[in-house]
């Protein structure tokens, strides 16, 4: 469904060009989940923004990203904007800054829906309420009347997932969706994404630096390091037989961090 071939991104800083991403290629099939794993600065967010056309003019992007037979990277910007939200939705890292603090959740949801579909305001509200209850958020009417600061980060992130879903996109790009929230909310967001995949058949690109989360949700994993793709394959394969030193390092540090906790909890 999405095929990315030799994606290159560079940015002009002063007189020099610095390469941010070089030669990233992957394919994503329908209702599959791809995890992109890497440390900060490894180029994982930039790759996603490039695919979604969210980079500014100072960036130069080359390569191909074929989505349903069309190359996203050469598409005119108007067509692309229609595609964003409708076909490809994005979930950002920080729910607190992704919403406009001056408007209620309902207001912002209606704005998003009306941008893409010819609904009246009450209809759009009704549609959004339905989605909210489908992702098991209680009392949707009450949530619609709230301003972003009145809700917790975890709650906002779940609303964001719902909002990404409302237009029934084929692909959701989740860029570190659980980094800014605590464990319990993290679990809820992950469950929600899992459910979305099962019920709506949406494909997901899940970007994270957290190896454990990726291992739970992804079918295949792409590991990035300093702008390069260092490992790519099915989740089991990458974690069991990593082909690069860097993947090994990521796995080892993760195991080290959880070992004491695991050891203690294993004593029951």
């Amino acid at each position: 469904m999405l095929e990315v071939r030799e994606l290159n991104v560079s940015v002009a800083t002063g007189n020099t060009q610095s390469h941010l991403v070089s030669d990233v290629s992957f394919t994503l099939k329908e209702d599959q989940c791809l995890g992109i794993l890497g440390e900060s600065g490894s180029g994982k967010s930039v790759s996603c923004s490039a695919i979604n056309g969210l980079l500014g003019e100072q960036f130069s992007v080359s390569g191909q990203a074929i989505f349903d037979g069309e190359n996203l990277l050469t598409m005119p910007s108007k067509q692309r904007q229609d595609m964003r939200g409708q076909q490809i939705a994005m979930i950002m890292q920080s729910p607190m800054t992704a919403f406009n603090p001056l408007f209620t959740i309902g207001n912002q949801a209606v704005e998003t829906i009306k941008q893409h579909q010819p609904h009246s305001t009450p209809d759009a509200k009704k549609l959004f309420c339905e989605i909210l209850s489908k992702v098991n958020l209680k009392n949707p009417q009450y949530l619609l009347s709230k301003y972003p600061h009145e809700l917790s980060g975890g709650m906002l992130q779940r609303i964001m997932v719902a909002l990404a879903l409302v237009l029934k996109p084929k692909l959701i790009i989740a860029d570190e969706p659980t980094t800014a929230i605590d464990y319990i909310s993290q679990r809820e967001v992950i469950n929600e994404l899992q459910m979305v995949r099962e019920r709506f058949g949406t494909s997901i690109i899940f970007v994270s630096h957290d190896l454990s989360l990726v291992s739970h949700i992804a079918d295949s994993v792409l590991v990035m390091h300093q702008g390069k793709m260092v490992d790519y394959g099915s989740t089991q394969q990458v974690f069991n037989a990593p082909s690069s030193q860097h993947t090994r390092y990521l796995i080892d540090t993760r195991l080290k961090l959880i070992n004491r906790f695991k050891h203690v909890m294993g004593g029951v």
């Binding site: 464990y183 993290q186 454990s212 974690f239 993760r254 695991k262």
Partner: peptide
């Protein structure tokens, strides 16, 4: 909730 920290299959340590 912290069970998500673990990796759901065996990996060679």
């Amino acid at each position: 909730a912290a069970s998500y920290l673990e990796i759901p299959f065996d990996i060679n340590d």
